[in-house]
Amino acid sequence: MFPKGVQGILDRYPNAGRDQLIPILQEVQDSMGYLSKGAVVAIGKALNLPASKIYGVATFYNQFRFEPLGKNHVQVCRGTACHVKGSGTVLEAMEKELGIEAGQTSRDGNFSIEVVACIGACGLAPVIAINGEFHAKVTTDQISGLLAEYRETEEQA
């Protein structure tokens, strides 16, 4: 009835209360890549909490997402150094290029964007990571080409 992976995780938290909510959400996201509607409802049933409450807690934190990851996952660093170096416009350009907002996944499932606080590469600011590969000192006019590379790799594969 519930998504299988979720139930498996919930089974490992018998008698869990609301104080276990965040670790459970993290574990579910780690295993499924995002928090699906079914997962939120299932967690609510298990913890005896209304689904609205769980959604409320999960949306409070940047770390949770509610759409499956794209084939290529873009992380845009919005830490202090990157911010000073213009990561705001980089994110904006990325969102415009892909037609989605941070936290969303493009309709074809190819790309998803995530905003991260700091990925510890301040010397390379502004920095983005696509599928874990770092791209340093990104400018807005590079973005289109950068994304095209990943799109092509996808097509060749």
């Binding site: 209304p50 609205s52 409450k53 959604y55 409320g56 949306t59 409070f60 934190y61």
Partner: peptide
């Protein structure tokens, strides 16, 4: 005892 709505985001 319904909780149809709650605070979301931040």
């Amino acid at each position: 005892h319904v909780s149809a709505i709650d605070f979301t985001k931040r």
